[in-house]
């Protein structure tokens, strides 16, 4: 049977154990394009859409856990309260049709340098849960999970089952630059979290490196400069934050943009997003 349609996680893991070459299908927005353009010829497909447990999320006082096949549309609508920055980033993905199909686990599995949820997840110190029939469950920090452009540490018999982030208080903002407002792959994008729980500013940057990047020096410096009671920051420190983020970027020139523009843009987006998180 060349296509498996398991209705529970155990069923999916069993197939992957037996057929490690199988292609995993979640929302289809990446996989189907590869198949239709003959960049991938599936011998066996494991389709995940019947596994309800993968579409669930859990909120505890300390942790938010998102099932792998939660769609961008669900994040945008149902999870905006718990993950406002992730909801903002999800709304910039593709079109409504794409957001109805595409999943957060798919964004992780594809691991595109331009993945729209990845900067937020990285900034939040997300951990990816991988599960296999043989070895059970393991958790990898996102930075260890993504090993390069479109490369991950997922083994062939493993499934991305969920991703979890710590719950923190404070304002969040994401921003993205591309040729138009919808249906674009980002030229540069950022997620900024002004984490009042830990009194640190977190930033993740996308499309300016082989994977999402943090700018740790920029984070440390601006976290010192912020008045955490008033949520205000001197304009000079915000400007320095933008410059330090641009400095930390590792952009390349490709058909979508130049390295120079990406570096400039990510600094502007970082400073702007931080400004929008703070009180004037």
């Amino acid at each position: 049977m060349p296509i498996s349609r398991p209705t529970d996680l155990a069923g999916a893991l069993e197939v992957l154990a037996e057929v490690p070459t199988a292609d995993v299908l979640a929302g289809g927005t990446d996989a189907m394009v590869e198949i239709s353009f003959d960049h991938r010829r599936p011998e066996h497909v494991v389709a995940l859409r019947r596994i309800d447990a993968l579409r669930e999320h859990r909120v505890s006082p300390a942790v938010l856990e998102l099932g792998a096949t939660i769609t961008y549309m669900q994040i945008e609508t149902e999870l905006a309260e718990h993950a406002p920055g992730l909801a903002m980033a999800s709304r910039t993905v593709g079109s409504p049709q794409i957001r109805n199909a595409g999943t957060i686990g798919g964004n992780l599995g594809t691991a595109s340098p331009a993945g729209d949820t990845l900067p937020w997840l990285l900034a939040m110190d997300a951990e990816v849960e991988l599960t296999s029939a043989a070895r059970g469950t393991r958790h990898l920090p996102l930075a260890a999970f993504i090993t390069g452009p479109k490369r991950t540490a997922r083994e062939a018999d493993e499934l991305i089952t969920s991703v979890r982030v710590p719950r923190v208080e404070g304002p969040q903002h994401t921003a993205k630059i591309g040729p138009r407002n919808a249906m674009v792959i980002s030229v540069a994008c950022v997620a900024v979290i002004v984490d009042t729980t830990n009194r640190v500013v977190r930033i993740g940057m996308g499309s300016v490196g082989p994977g999402p990047l943090r700018a740790t020096d920029a984070e440390a410096a601006v976290s010192e400069a912020i008045d955490w009671e008033a949520l205000r920051c001197p304009e000079a420190a915000i400007g320095a934050f933008g410059r330090a983020c641009a400095e930390a970027a590792r952009p390349i020139t490709d058909h979508r943009s130049t390295a120079e523009y990406r570096r400039h843009a990510v600094g502007v987006l970082a400073a702007r997003s931080l400004r929008r998180c703070l009180n004037a």
Binding site: I3, M32, V33, G94, Q97, A101
Partner: peptide
């Protein structure tokens, strides 16, 4: 490739691009 929306339809009441849906699924 899910860019143009010309193939939009409903699957279980959800608006999708049918080019991005695996028929066998």
């Amino acid at each position: 490739q899910g860019e143009c929306g010309s193939c939009s339809l409903y699957v279980d009441g959800v608006l999708l691009n049918s080019c991005c849906v695996l028929a066998a699924d």
